[in-house]
Write a protein that binds this DNA or RNA. Structure first.
Lengths: 351, 351
DNA sequence: CTGTTAGCGCGTTCAT
DNA sequence: ATGAACGCGCTAACAG
């Protein structure tokens, strides 16, 4: 008796049915495996009636080609790794949404890892992407490590929102310095001379450039830029609200505050509300990054709007371009422009 | 001359270096492939000094095991598919974050697909998960299709937040009926008799049960439940704000509105603000789902808080349990309890 | 303790 | 137009 088609293969007791394989389909259609492969893949010559028979058999058996086998054969895995710093932060969530949208439109799958801005976890994510033979990787870098590993192994990488400085990878980011300038110049234009800034990271170019834009806007206007007007919470082990409170108490002359990202904006907003400061009468506020809540509070929060969803989409497209070229070509760098949205939280200083 | 180890393999011109394979490692360490495999995998017997030599070689060559090969061999892919309806909605983003957290703690990778609540896209996602041999799938069902496909192929499935009704899959959800009751009973307790509800879907059990909870709370209090107090936006092709405006105009007796989810809460909040209605004096408002902005607006929005992050985490754990048992065991169903958070948006009716 | 062998599912030669 | 044979990288048998 020949090795019957009906032989139970991989008969685990888990209740999980063995998946139909190309061989099953071929046998059901009465052809060889290679013919079945051509019929389903659409390559090479296959007689029409055979093709139909194979397709019918595949449908009937619920055949789904095995990507791992195909990947092993040297073809693409169809997987793109994405590494973000904090999925609970709406900024990153929307970034991921933009990425996913572009990837899935191109037939790719997104493997999403949240590294919580931790270098160790980012490195683990990079290794995982390597192991699964991801066709490319998108990431908001925490440090150089992950990008270096990936680029070193020849995996196309595009950095989002900030750059690690590693050569050989594409990047898509916002013009952070200009965005900060827009915000601060607006305040200066209203007559503010004492403007504070609240930042929670200056280790990456994102925060650093926002700080830079803040400083140069003031300097260009001939205004002083005292260090004590800068609240840097990046070391912040302690209570951020308390540090902010101390900052405000120590700078009674401030008539406006620039929050360098949405998290800081939330912090500032809550603290001003807590202490009963009138906005904008007592203190004007501008945020970098415009979230939905900023138009719902009273007064609405003026903000530097970033095209976050598009940022993710553009980055994905840039990456897939490179993947399509098998990694060849010079590293590209795209800078998107932010836009200032004026609402009620900014007004001329009172005195 | 034997087939040299130094032969160039897969030499594409893309500038991408060939990855080190287990064979390369074995040759560099002067052993066979299986010994190298055992040394790195930690199974079976390997002499200590050999093991060290293999590990050193692997490190030196930057060896990363190929998951597709391992998967093909019948082992787990380490991939879990996750299908959500709208990644831009903070609810789903936080759900995904909770899932990711639990998965990555267990060494799994999350393949995230946003189906935009579209049945077609969900089906495509399910097929992709099948093709990549995902070890399990988590999803917020849009219809029965995707779950049926997956379960039919023996893939462990856990549904989140709502259920499709397909047998054989686990589920983790919120007690939506009870959450809605909490909200509406609170309003009734304050003295409201004319309470409206705004819903944007009743096709899933989530919205249906919230509506049910709303109705039964009123009924149990001996209050009437007129149809015109229910605004169902689920067919909503038109302008939702306009429909809401018409609803409010047509129900001048309403003293309170229950928004069945965070999107509806935003809509209601904006519309009340637009028309200058005082909250809570003119109209009390409660939301199902508590987002960050709800505590930042003035007055703060009373809301039914759901443990969204935990919901995702619990679902992931439930799924991984089943994956660990190779799919065996009865389908489990977990129901998490919501909690009413009182803020300033609810007060006794004016008259 | 180690090496040899076989095969996971697929695509791609090469002969028919 | 079709089928037989090989190998992608890895691991689980089995010898030695």
């Amino acid at each position: 008796m020949a090795n019957g088609a009906a032989a139970v293969r991989g008969g685990g007791s888990g209740g999980r049915r063995a998946r139909a394989t190309l061989r099953d389909v071929a046998e059901a259609a009465g052809t060889s495996r290679s013919t079945a492969s051509r019929a389903l893949g659409g390559h090479g010559y296959v007689a029409d009636h055979i093709k139909e028979r194979v397709e019918a058999a595949a449908e009937r058996l619920g055949y789904v080609p095995d990507v791992s086998a195909r990947t092993l054969k040297g073809r693409s895995s169809g997987l793109v790794g994405v590494l973000v710093s904090d999925l609970r932060n709406q900024f990153y969530a929307e970034l991921a949404a933009g990425v996913e949208h572009a990837l899935s439109a191109a037939g790719y799958q997104m493997v999403l890892v949240d590294d919580h801005a931790d270098e160790e976890r980012a490195a683990a994510g990079a290794r995982a992407f390597l192991a699964m033979r991801a066709d490319g990787v998108l990431l908001t870098p925490v440090a150089r490590g992950a990008t270096e590993t990936l680029v070193g192994h020849g995996v196309p990488v595009t950095e989002l929102d900030r750059r690690s400085g590693v050569r050989g990878c594409d990047a898509v980011a916002i013009d952070n310095e200009r965005g900060a300038r827009l915000a601060v110049e607006h305040l200066i234009g209203l007559g503010h001379r004492d403007v504070g800034i609240v930042v929670d990271e200056v280790q990456w170019d994102t925060g650093r450039n926002r700080l830079k834009g803040y400083r140069s806007a003031l300097r260009d206007a001939g205004l002083p830029v005292p260090r004590r007007h800068v609240l840097d919470l990046s070391q912040g082990e302690g209570d951020q609200a308390a540090q902010l409170a101390a900052f405000l108490d120590g700078n009674p002359a401030l008539t406006a505050v620039f929050a360098a990202n949405n998290v800081m904006a939330e912090l500032v907003w809550q603290e001003l509300k807590r202490r009963g400061s009138a906005v904008p009468e007592g203190c004007s506020v501008v945020s970098f990054d415009d979230l939905a809540w900023m138009k719902m509070v009273e007064p609405g929060l003026s903000a530097v709007r970033q095209p976050v969803f598009d940022l993710g989409g553009r980055a994905a497209e840039l990456l897939l371009d490179r993947v399509g070229r098998d990694g060849a070509g010079r590293a590209e760098s795209v800078v998107l422009q932010p836009e200032l949205v004026l609402r009620g939280s900014t007004a001329p200083p009172k005195n």
